[in-house]
Design a binder for these strands. Structure first.
Lengths: 189, 189
DNA sequence: GTCTATAATACGATAGAC
DNA sequence: GTCTATCGTATTATAGAC
């Protein structure tokens, strides 16, 4: 099945989908950019939609692993919060295609009923963690949804603004400002 | 030019674009849903893209007016912040199509170089206001971008989650939780 | 201003040779 | 596994009657 070819198709498509959108990218575009013919692409993926699904799956898995190891780095919640904010911004700077695909591509338009990556496993992972911390009294009492959104909303909005061209600086340079807002928003004081 | 017909095309298209996406909506779809023929639609709009532009323009104007009057309601910043959060959530509940179009439709995919509505005039309006408040010492010193994102990120993320089906309750019911996080994040204490 | 009919094109997907 | 060639279809947009 030529694993490398399949992988090249995936990474080529990720770039094209995020840069020009799923619907503005034809299978011909992907094939040409990957140095293949349309026939070859269709040999690896029965449908265009399946290429998008493959990207979604690998992105989701990557983010779950990344979040798990980020949380494991510290024992104090305060430090974990800083580290999560930092990681999200760093990934947006370093793996732009991957993060933009996860957050910006409208999966619902591609396959009806499809949930965005950020609301699936990676989001649930964080929600569970903060529910425990809330029970322990380490953050204020509030709706569990609100706690996770308090943590992720600012990093995500900054990413979206960066991708939309409203920010030119590296996102990582906003780490402290964002962390301060986030932590003050949830700390139990 | 039959103003009502033009208006019916716009509101019909807004619903279709937000529900099934710009690229999954054909001009035939719009015409049929509006009770017209494709020829009639093309009489009012030379290109499909222009329909999207017309929606964008009216949405932007609406939001600017809405934000201006919301800020004018109170003199205390604290109250203004609550009111803005409340207004954003209320609009998302009451004018879903309009808000979802403003925030969820990927304008960049429709016309290259197009900025999202939320980053244009409405966003700039809030940024100017908070820059003044920061100079007056009413909120903590931080990057002006960060201050506005601190205010808008949580309401916007909640909207996106609602539209993606992750939330079923009315958004307005989260007003207090969101306001607490936002205000604690920016207050000068 | 609205209709029907159709032109022109691009796309997803397939067939069959190599 | 990869290629070229092509089918069938859907889409944007136009032409011309009413």
């Amino acid at each position: 099945m030529s694993f490398e070819t399949r992988q090249r198709i995936i990474s080529t498509a990720t770039g094209l989908f995020t840069r020009q959108g799923y619907f503005n990218t034809s299978v011909r575009d992907i094939a040409k950019a990957a140095g293949l013919s349309t026939g070859a692409v269709y040999h690896h993926f029965p449908r265009k939609k399946e290429i998008a699904s493959a990207i979604t799956d690998s992105t989701r898995d990557f983010l779950v692993t990344e979040f798990e190891s980020t949380i494991a780095k510290h024992s104090e919640l305060k430090d974990q919060v800083f580290e999560i904010v930092h990681t999200m911004l760093r990934l947006a700077d370093e793996k732009r295609d991957l993060m933009e695909y996860a957050l910006h591509v409208k999966h619902r338009e591609i396959s009806p009923g499809g949930k965005p990556i950020c609301l699936a496993e990676p989001f649930e992972l964080l929600k569970k963690h903060f529910r425990r911390q809330m029970a322990l009294g380490n953050i204020r009492k509030m709706d569990p949804h609100a706690a996770v959104v308090c943590l992720t909303a600012m990093p995500i909005r900054f990413m979206q603004m960066k991708w939309d061209g409203a920010i030119s600086k590296k996102l990582i340079s906003y780490t402290n400002d964002i962390y301060e807002c986030v932590w003050r928003g949830m700390e139990n004081s």
